[in-house]
Design a protein around this nucleic acid. Sequence first.
DNA 1: CTTTATACGGAACAATGTTCCGTTTATCAA
DNA 2: TTGATAAACGGAACATTGTTCCGTATAAAG
Lengths: 184, 184
Amino acid sequence: MRADARRNLDTLLQTAMAVFASAGVDAPVREIAEKAGVGIGTVYRHFPQRSDLVAAVFRREIDACADAAAVLSAKHAPFEALAAWMQRYTAFVAAKRGLAKALHSGDPAFDTLPGYFDQRLRPALRKLLEAATAAGTVRPDVDADELLGAVASLCMSAHNVGSGRAERMVALLVDGLRHGAKSP
Amino acid sequence: MRADARRNLDTLLQTAMAVFASAGVDAPVREIAEKAGVGIGTVYRHFPQRSDLVAAVFRREIDACADAAAVLSAKHAPFEALAAWMQRYTAFVAAKRGLAKALHSGDPAFDTLPGYFDQRLRPALRKLLEAATAAGTVRPDVDADELLGAVASLCMSAHNVGSGRAERMVALLVDGLRHGAKSP
DNA sequence: CTTTATACGGAACAATGTTCCGTTTATCAA
DNA sequence: TTGATAAACGGAACATTGTTCCGTATAAAG
């Protein structure tokens, strides 16, 4: 792959992420291309359809969230790493409320996203959970899937718009994980 | 209101309902205008925005569903009327799965729809319920709101696509209403 | 029948997704 | 270093669709 192509792809994804975050996923392709300093043709060579760009940005954010698990795990004690990652995941889900619409739009470009979501995030959380359980700071009867789903529900609910409510609920959830741990 | 205007408005709403049903609520305005045999300008005079047309069609379908209650009530015994209307409502909700997206689009044209929905359908169902309860064929501890919500949930669930599953579940629900009635 | 306010139709405009192709440039062999 | 070339670039042009505007047609009233 040519160096300029790689460069453009990177700035494109970065810019698209920023634009989607501030103007929503319906932002015009022209605007993204302009802000990234590339032509429209460049965008469409990398992403044949607009939805492909959206999906790529999404996948990238899933990756970032999943990768954060290992970093946090190396930097903190098991329980603290778990708690920190849960907040990281909360931020991710909360910021992506617009995704639900896109996912249900029927566009084939989004078909593989739910699977990718599971494939990357579930193992990430499972490792954190297992480490904390092994350390005795978290109860052993909690399922990674259920936890991911619960947080998503908390964040998606219409009553949780704004003002850290979702974060507080998730913090409560995480505190609940301590109950029944081997060593308190 | 001029006669031709009234005529055009009616055919427009009828046509739009048919097109939305077959091609989805994203069908182009031009297509609707053409099928209705009117110019685009005519559509936009009656409905300043595309979403206003969608909302009008919706309101009309809510009306039809609500009005069906009185008709069924006059034609059948209380319980049979209730059961028939529940199926009518089921068909209405099932057909309008695309509505959820529209409702959450943030377009102000849809702001009053949820309220209208309640205002028309809740009393309709309440009257049917009260009549059946008074006749002793339905238990008295059922709330119209809850019933409407339950049916909506049954229909909206992604697992209920196709093949009368929702209808069967609703029928079950209705049969459940008989339990604990004064006279079995 | 004439008048007039109303409604009509569709051309024209604007925004946006997508395609196409002439031009530029990174890469590499000589 | 330089020339060849395949890859990538940029943006004009096209297609679709929502929306506006205005000249024309017509229903309604006297």
